[in-house]
Design a protein around this nucleic acid. Structure first.
Lengths: 227, 227
DNA sequence: CGCGGCTTTGATGTTCATCAAGTAAAGTGG
DNA sequence: CCACTTTACTTGATGAACATCAAAGCCGCG
C-alpha cells in the first residue's frame, strides 16, 4: 500500500509512459498506489465499481468470469500486462474477476486521472489505444485458436503458452491447477489429466506434480498446430 | 465511390463525431470516402495493409478468419458498427477479413487522419477508446458464452442474436447460410440443420428456407441460457 | 489425525463429427 | 430458356471424441 515514487525504476515506464512529460509522470507517481496480493487472493471482483486503472508490476494473475458454479478463464496476465482490459473504459463495473496465481503487485492509478491524461495528452491516448487494441486482439485470436482445436491440441497450446509466453523456459512449475487448465481451454479436469498423461507416455513431456518439462517441443508444436 | 459531404445526415455522426468541432468535421468530410459493396463481396482481406478506418453505414457484414480450408466467423457487424476492430491500431495489416452479407456501404477515413485526430482531440480519443473497448468486450464475452453452450444452446443464441440484435423482429431472413452459422458458433453444418429441424419439430421456430420465425421466444431463451 | 480438495485411472454413456446419399436451389454456358 | 454444374440443404447411420460417474490415492492444513 506504499505510495513511494519509484516509477523511474518501473520497467513499464518505458512501455507505457513513453510519451508522458516529466511533470505528468511526477503527478501520476504521487497519485499511484501499489498493492500487494498473496497467491490466491482476489484482486478484482466481477460487478464491483471500476475506480482504478491497474497493471501488473510483478507476479501472475488470471482473468475469469464466474457463471453458476463454473469459472471460465479469459486469459492469464504476466508482469507489465494490463489487468484492466475489458470494461475498463466501456463500463463502470467490472464484468470479470481477477485473482493472483502467484504473489503479485499491482500498480493502480485513479481512472479519472487516466481519462484526464487521455484528454490532454494525445500521444499518450494513441499509445494506450494501441496497447489496449493489441491485448483485445490477442485474446480474441487466441480464443478462436483454442476453439478450433481438439483436446490434445489445446493442451499442447497451453503448455507452449506457459513455456513460451509466461516463463520462457522448457521446464516450469504450472501456476494453475489441472482444474484451472480445464477452465481455461474449455474441457473437463479429467481429460486434462488424461491428455497430460498421454503426453508423458509419448515422451513429449515429463511431469512431476506441478513441474512440467517439455522434452519434444517440435512435436508439441505440431500437435498444437494440427489440432 | 462518391465523395459527397453529407456527414450532417449520417446517423453515426452523433455517436462518433460528438466531440469533433465543426471545422474538424468538415475536414474529415472532405477526406472521407464512401464505398458500396454488393452482397458477397470482399471488403477487407486478411494480410492487406491497413490504410483506412472503416465503419459500416448500411448493410451487414461478417468478420472472419480463414485458416486452411476452414473459416471462423468472429462477429457480425450491423450499421454504425466499426468494421475496423482488431488490428486497426495495433498492427499495420489486417488479421481478419470482412465480407458483405447484404449490399453494404462503408465510410472510410484515412487511418493517419484518425490518428492525428486522436492526438489533437482528447475527448474524441476517449470516446473512441470507449467504443473500441465496448466492441472488444462484447466479442470476448460472446465468445466465452458460446463456448460453454451445447449445440442447442448455441443455435438458440444465434437465433436470438439475429432476432434481437440485428433485426429486432421475431421473423427475419437469415443473412447467412447454414454453413456460415456453423462457422460462427463452432459446429458442423449438418448439426446446425439438425438442431434447427429439432426446434421446428418442437414448435419453437418456423422455417421456410432462410426465413425464420421465432414462435416460442421464452423457451428459446431458456435453451440459450441453460446450454 | 482426519477432513476436504486436488489428482489420477477406469468404465460408461452422450454428444457430436464424419461419412454417405439424396433433394432442392442457384448459378453457368450454350 | 434449357441442360448442366455447382453449391446449399437435408436426413440417416456410424464411430470417435469427449463428458460424466465412480473410486481410490495423495497432499496440505487445521
Amino acid at each position: 500500500m506504499a505510495n513511494t515514487c519509484n516509477c523511474d525504476q518501473c520497467e513499464l515506464r518505458s512501455l507505457f509512459f513513453n510519451n508522458v512529460s516529466k511533470e505528468e509522470l511526477d503527478s501520476l507517481c504521487t497519485l499511484k498506489i501499489e498493492r500487494t496480493y498473496p497467491k490466491g487472493e482476489l484482486i478484482v471482483e466481477e460487478g464491483n465499481e471500476i475506480r482504478e486503472f491497474n497493471y501488473l508490476k510483478s507476479g501472475l494473475v488470471k482473468l475469469y468470469k464466474s457463471t453458476d458454479e463454473r469459472e471460465q478463464i479469459i486469459t492469464i496476465a504476466k508482469p507489465f500486462d494490463f489487468i484492466s482490459l475489458l470494461s475498463i473504459f466501456s463500463n463502470n463495473v467490472y464484468n470479470y474477476s481477477v485473482r493472483a496465481l502467484e504473489d503479485s503487485v499491482t500498480c493502480n492509478i485513479s481512472i479519472t486521472r487516466i481519462k484526464d491524461l487521455i484528454k490532454t495528452n494525445g500521444t499518450f491516448a494513441l499509445e494506450l489505444l494501441e496497447k489496449m487494441n493489441r491485448i483485445a486482439d490477442s485474446i480474441i485470436i487466441e480464443s478462436l485458436n483454442i476453439r478450433r482445436k481438439h483436446l490434445r491440441g489445446r493442451i499442447a497450446h497451453v503448455l507452449l503458452f506457459f513455456a513460451g509466453y509466461i516463463y520462457n523456459a522448457p521446464e516450469f512449475e504450472l501456476p494453475i491447477s489441472r482444474k484451472e487448465i480445464a477452465e481455461y481451454i474449455g474441457m473437463t479436469t479429467e481429460n486434462v489429466i488424461r491428455t497430460l498423461s498421454e503426453f508423458r507416455k509419448d515422451k513429449i513431456i515429463k511431469i512431476n506434480g506441478k513441474i512440467i518439462e517439455i522434452i519434444n517441443r517440435d512435436l508439441l508444436e505440431r500437435i498444437s498446430q494440427l489440432g
